[in-house]
Design a protein around this nucleic acid. Structure first.
Lengths: 237, 237
DNA sequence: CGTAGTCTTGAATGACCTCAAACGCTGTGG
DNA sequence: CCACAGCGTTTGAGGTCATTCAAGACTACG
């Protein structure tokens, strides 16, 4: 059921930045939206890339699985971000699973539609190029971290990245605003949930973070930055 | 001195695939080429992205350096491949160094030219999207390997990737056709040159590879695949 | 023929993983 | 409302893969 949404949902989506009112309406008209409850797999690694997607609300985890079942979290997608779009143009196969980690609303366009839209509105292609470029640089940075840094610093970097992307200010500090398990963090940083747990426990005893079941609150972001950048810890405040 | 090259050099460049004769001539007319001796740094990490580049001949290493000087080899660029182009559209800053590891010939377009060309010939943008998309997927695969695989398998993967990209058939097997040090391999796989050296020595004693100063020859590619995929070694042949 | 860069190899250390067990929160069904 | 089951988390002990430290051999080149 191609539920045609309010064109307003596209506002703030980098993929459609700079399109005029008419073009946006055109884009929206061809979209399909659907609700995806927490835990739903939106597409699976290895499937033909039938559609390009974007997230209206919620949170989606992009996970790649290796030959022996090892999983790696490539990124988390938040509202306004596209996902699975790349596969439509390069490869034609989804390179990873997309799983909703919170109740979400997703919008998508069939591969054919996506291609047509892009030819009709060249601006979309340029936007996509910029977005993909940014992601490539981000993944390359992670590659460097993973190659050269110790586990503790990698975990600090991962949390800081999540704070930037999905941080919500609360009295006690900043919290990650979606369910995030130790296992997830481990799969983002190339370590085990045990090491993540130990690390967070150590930080908790220093008052830097506060943990909970699938929940992380950062009490002292600056201390986390110090760890990530390997600076001397600041004087206690 | 904008040495205008023969349009033929653009043939087989994925970035300009599908352009008609006239468009190609247009592209070539705006290009600058230059010879870059081995060891030359073509651009430096952190510099404003003044131009998009492509390689006519030779081999270029893309290296990212971390805050404390740790280096990571992002990829090797061969003839026909573009490099440093992404930075023109996303970020405006080169995210890595580009160094010629063999005497090379490079062609480049200023950022302004590049943008103009892309608007005039939308096909270039789509090509770029496909290329960047492919690279993103490749980097993501490496990220997964680095996260989940042991050093030996990572080295095997790296060599196989190089064979695919720069392998030259010779009597004894396949050799990497440009100078490649143990240090380079270490920086591609997130390990140390010591471990790479030990690993290659072990393989050499099993007759799988043959080493030399900045030189690697693969005698039994299938054995390397077996290591990379963690298959049982085949019966000796 | 000396020098600088590359490569090899040994020994010791240590960061992190693996294995193992137990704890505690959360939601569910009786 | 309580009990229980399931899942995520914590923590310990032991082992190991790879790094670090160290020294020496080889190769290319001026």
């Amino acid at each position: 059921m191609p539920l045609t949404p309010d064109p307003a949902v596209l506002h703030g989506m980098a993929l459609f930045a700079g399109l005029d009112r008419e073009a946006l309406a055109d884009v929206v008209r061809q979209a399909h939206t659907r609700r995806v409850p927490r835990g739903t797999r939106i597409f699976a690694q290895g499937d033909p890339a039938a559609a390009g997607h974007a997230l209206i609300d919620g949170r989606v985890k992009i996970v790649q699985t290796g030959a022996e079942g090892q999983q790696v979290v490539m990124r988390f997608i938040g509202p306004g971000e596209m996902f699975g779009t790349l596969a439509v143009f390069a490869g034609g196969i989804y390179p990873a699973d997309a799983v909703a980690v919170a109740d979400s609303v997703e919008i998508h366009w069939t591969a054919a539609t996506m291609t047509a839209l892009m030819e009709l509105h060249p601006r979309i292609g340029l936007n996509a190029l910029r977005i993909i470029g940014g992601r490539l640089q981000e993944v390359q940075s992670r590659l460097r971290e993973l190659s050269t840094e110790r586990v503790e610093r990698r975990i600090a970097h991962a949390l800081l990245r999540l704070v930037r992307q999905a941080g919500r200010r609360v009295d006690a500090g900043v919290e990650i605003d979606f369910p995030l398990s130790r296992q997830d963090v481990a799969e983002m940083t190339g370590t085990t949930l045990h090491t993540v747990s130990r690390t967070l426990s150590a930080w908790e005893s220093r008052g830097i973070v506060e943990g909970g079941r699938q929940h992380v609150l950062i009490r002292k972001p600056h201390a986390l930055v110090a760890i990530a950048e390997d600076l001397p810890p600041a004087a206690p405040g």
